[in-house]
């Protein structure tokens, strides 16, 4: 599912968070939105999904303008917080959100088992969320976003607090989903995760300061460290693409 963001502005009171953002995200790829904490990544994701309105500009997903309720059935969203019910078990959380997505009851059990296996939570599927550690919650939250096999997966800082071994496993699974045709949008403020993605954009001061394939971005830096791109001043800030 191709996402087109066109000249989007967003302010909260006096603070301008997004300034004339234009961005095209190709379908069937993993796209990474990179930016410091507070740079507006979550805000941009919310506008892309149609949760909050932009002050100006437009967003289409798969050619359909957001907000659109049918579109939401094809999206899986993992918010930055865990966004799980503390008094329910992992299994019950999965079941609840699968129900909201009108996922068929017949396939649910098998799908849920498979997903919990991937995020390494099969053993404690009946544990209440309030008894789980931060990393466990993060993994369950990811499973919830995946339960209805969405065509577009939106993950807000998905691997914060997940240990390196499991992190690799999760990325492996995300790339497998990509190969099956899922479009994935991830945000992160951890640079080394970018290498797992196909494309990336850097967000700073409300502007996209760089946008390219990860390979090309790395080639632009002197020592292959994408972090450097944040220090190269005002690189291409002026020449935002018009659409």
């Amino acid at each position: 599912m191709k996402i087109e963001v066109c000249e989007v502005n967003k302010s909260f009171k006096q603070q301008q968070v997004l300034n004339q953002i234009s961005l095209t995200i190709a379908g069937g790829r993993i796209f990474c939105l990179l930016g410091a904490s507070g740079s507006g990544k979550t805000t941009l994701l919310r506008i892309m999904m149609g949760a909050i309105p932009a002050d100006g500009g437009s967003v289409t997903v798969g050619g359909i303008a957001v907000p659109n309720r049918q579109l939401l059935a094809e999206m899986g969203y993992m918010p930055q917080n865990e966004a799980l019910y503390e008094e329910l078990s992992a299994w019950e959380n999965l079941k609840f959100f699968a129900g909201l997505q009108r996922q068929s009851r017949k396939t649910f059990a098998a799908d849920a088992e498979a997903l919990l296996e991937i995020v390494d939570m099969a053993a404690c599927k009946n544990k209440l969320i309030r008894d789980c550690s931060g990393g466990m919650k993060k993994r369950i939250s990811l499973a919830v976003a995946l339960i209805h096999k969405p065509k577009l997966l939106v993950l807000d800082e998905p691997t914060v607090g997940v240990d390196p071994v499991l992190r690799r496993k999760i990325w492996l699974y995300l790339r497998q989903l990509r190969n099956e045709g899922t479009t994935i949008v991830v945000t992160t403020h951890v640079m080394d995760e970018v290498t797992q993605c196909d494309d990336a954009a850097l967000l700073r001061n409300g502007h996209i300061i760089a946008r390219d394939t990860v390979k090309n971005l790395i080639a632009q830096t002197p020592d292959g460290n994408i972090e450097e791109l944040f220090f190269i001043d005002n690189q291409s800030e002026a020449e935002a693409p018009l659409c």
Binding site: R69, P79, Q80, A83, L84
Partner: peptide, 15 residues
């Protein structure tokens, strides 16, 4: 509201 479960709920096709 603050655990973002409401946000997650509303990002499904529920009315």
């Amino acid at each position: 509201r603050f655990g973002q479960t409401l946000e997650r709920m509303l990002m499904t096709p529920i009315r």
